[in-house]
């Protein structure tokens, strides 16, 4: 720190010297001093040539918020817990001798389980770790699909406006007006019965993705409508840059932060919807596994809810923690990309 301050002072001295000496009749001695000061100043500029890219600025802003970093930490933990941990854990087995055992902190002892066991004697800890994968996977792929569709439709609609915009906007409105739950329930009931577990999960992801892009498309369209009137876009057009290049090089980089923020929040929402569907019995079903399904099994009837609270508490806790942490990250990102909070 001290070194930095020292440098700064040095540079002021150099700058002052240049200012003092510039434009005057100079003696040889003064000329030498001026040259020296100029050299120093140039050296400083080179030394301080730290390029702060816009991405770097966002990261600095992001880091600065405590709640965001807590969210990021929580999310990292959940990722490790549900993607990495299951690799090292034993297979889930039914164990009729140890059914409906309550949770215990001494889980390494025989007959003790950290999260307890269910009606078939399966370890709830293992099931929660295993079920997280499906929940996150469905959420991520559905988000990916909707981000791709939303970005393409939103940018084309905003950039080309006029009749193309009009058609795409009407199309967006139609998709938006789809009654989501009835559609999923009907589809799930109609073709779901003939599908195996993987196909079923795939169906849910596709439906979620194909329906969820409308918000992003509208958001992007609005942003791009104002962006395309900016003078740097006009300048690119005046230079004869092709439309496709303008979208790829100017429009997308300027809305990418928006896309990321929106995707993050959508990810959280998709995890919730998947849980909700599985909870209602229209999503993942046995022998599959997901947090929503575990929640369903934990709330089968009032006696289970009352007497085996660990069956619904732990999956519920994980859904809550996941959605909460993703939302923290999303909010943090949104603030970080807002150019009004410049922190270098």
């Amino acid at each position: 720190m001290a070194d930095k301050k020292n440098r700064k002072e040095q540079h002021y001295v150099a700058e002052d010297q240049i200012e003092d000496l510039q434009g005057k009749e100079l003696s040889a001695e003064e000329q030498r001093r001026l040259d020296e000061a100029r050299e120093k100043e140039l050296e400083r500029l080179e030394r301080e040539d730290v390029v702060i890219s816009p991405a770097r600025m966002v990261w600095n802003n992001f880091k600065a918020r405590k709640i965001t970093m807590i969210g990021a930490g929580m999310f990292l933990f959940i990722i490790l817990f549900s993607l990495l941990l299951p690799v090292f854990l034993p297979e889930i087995e039914t164990d009729m001798a140890n059914r409906r055992v309550g949770p215990s902190l001494f889980f390494w002892r025989e007959g003790h389980y950290l999260f307890g066991t269910d009606n078939h004697g399966r370890d709830v800890f293992l099931r929660v770790a295993d079920g997280g994968f499906v929940s996150l996977y469905v959420g991520a792929v559905a988000t990916f699909i909707s981000v791709i569709i939303g970005t393409i439709i939103g940018s084309v609609s905003g950039y080309f406006h006029g009749i193309i915009d009009n058609i795409l906007q009407r199309f967006t409105e139609i998709v938006r007006a789809f009654p989501f739950l009835p559609l999923v329930i009907t589809l799930s009931a109609a073709i779901g019965a003939d599908l195996d577990e993987d196909e079923r999960i795939f169906l849910i992801m596709v439906i979620l993705g194909v329906i969820g892009w409308t918000g992003l498309a509208r958001l992007l369209r609005g942003q791009i409508l104002s962006l395309r009137e900016q003078e740097f876009i006009l300048a690119a057009r005046a230079m004869g840059v092709k439309n496709f290049q303008i979208i790829a090089k100017h429009i997308i980089p300027n809305v990418i932060s928006l896309i990321i923020v929106s995707a993050t929040l959508q990810f959280a929402a998709n995890i919730l919807v998947e849980s909700g569907l599985s909870f209602l019995g229209f999503g993942v079903q046995e022998p599959g596994n997901s947090w929503g399904l575990l929640l369903r099994q934990g709330t089968r009837d009032s006696s289970v809810i009352q007497n085996q609270p660990w069956l619904w508490f732990f999956p519920g806790l994980f859904i809550l923690a996941t959605v909460l942490s993703i939302n923290f990250i999303g909010d943090g990102l949104r603030d970080a990309v807002d150019p009004r909070n410049v922190r270098r």
Partner: peptide, 13 residues
């Protein structure tokens, strides 16, 4: 252009 702020893409060097 007139506006030296709006006429340069903030994401490019």
């Amino acid at each position: 252009f007139q506006d030296p702020y709006g006429s340069l893409d903030p994401k490019q060097t």
